[in-house]
Design a protein around this nucleic acid. Structure first.
Lengths: 142, 142
DNA sequence: CTAATTCCTATCTGTTTACTCGGATTTATA
DNA sequence: TATAAATCCGAGTAAACAGATAGGAATTAG
């Protein structure tokens, strides 16, 4: 039941961008260094996030990445869906286009997976990048 | 964010055993056939469930497996923990013995993973095998 | 004694993950 | 305009893992 590094690293990177929201674009290299991630690998994740419309990029010297919306308007769910695909612990209980096996209609375990999925969705859709930034500020104060 | 077949198949098997609770032991072969699972593979899962104390076995002809407690006293969480290990989407946010990286104390994303984990835990610990049986009865009636 | 069954351990194969690399393109600035 | 700093793009790879298979020993009801 583990998340891949896509989701893990991706949220770190998005949080990093959120902390710098409003300033100049942030380079891949600096994000990778701060967050302890392989730069080359992160590059691929940013491409996915860009395609999903969560970040935009500026090429060339002094270029980098920016959030394409305010931190308050990007949820953890947005990030995870972009990187990990539709939410769900099993293919027959994905939030979108569940893959129906032969036993689909009579399957009781499926109902369990759907309940778990819904609790995950409720949580990830309720946390924004801004929430995370505020949480971070609380920490450094104390 | 996918569950392995351990958890998937394991819960199916446990549900199957719950449906037959109170009767003679159920053979691996019959569970595998009803649930559409490889018999040999299921064997390994049952060994894990047995070691975890969730089922007991009777060897020899006409032997098989039985729940070691009443369906009302076994939760989905019990089954998943036995088969998948401590709950958590990332190693630094496991419910038991989280693996602390260097950034552990200052890591904000970790807090997110913990919230998701807690919502999963709340759900899986609130559903028992009996609940699943009742759900199944509802379905066949309608 | 026989057939049915669990128990135990080992092995295999395909897929996925996480990462690396090389080079093309863009662009701010000196 | 030259240069360095970036993003962009596609390919390749090693290790880990999932899922399954197999063979044979031990147990037991009939």
């Amino acid at each position: 039941m583990k998340l891949s590094t896509k989701g893990r690293y991706g949220l770190k990177a998005m949080y990093d961008l959120a902390l710098h929201y409003g300033n100049e674009p942030i380079s891949l290299k600096s994000i990778a260094q701060r967050q302890g991630i392989s730069e080359y690998y992160l590059e691929q994740l940013m491409a996915i996030l860009k395609k999903a419309g969560l970040v935009r990029s500026i090429r060339g010297a002094y270029g980098g990445y920016l959030l394409s919306r305010k931190p308050s308007e990007i949820t953890v769910g947005d990030v995870l869906r972009a990187l990990e695909g539709p939410i769900g612990l099993v293919d027959c209980a994905l939030e979108q286009e569940p893959i129906k096996c032969l036993r689909y209609d009579n399957c009781i375990t499926r109902i369990v997976w759907e309940k778990i999925r819904d609790s995950i969705i409720k949580t990830i859709d309720s946390i924004t990048l801004l929430d995370m930034c505020n949480e971070g500020r609380k920490k450094t104060k104390s």
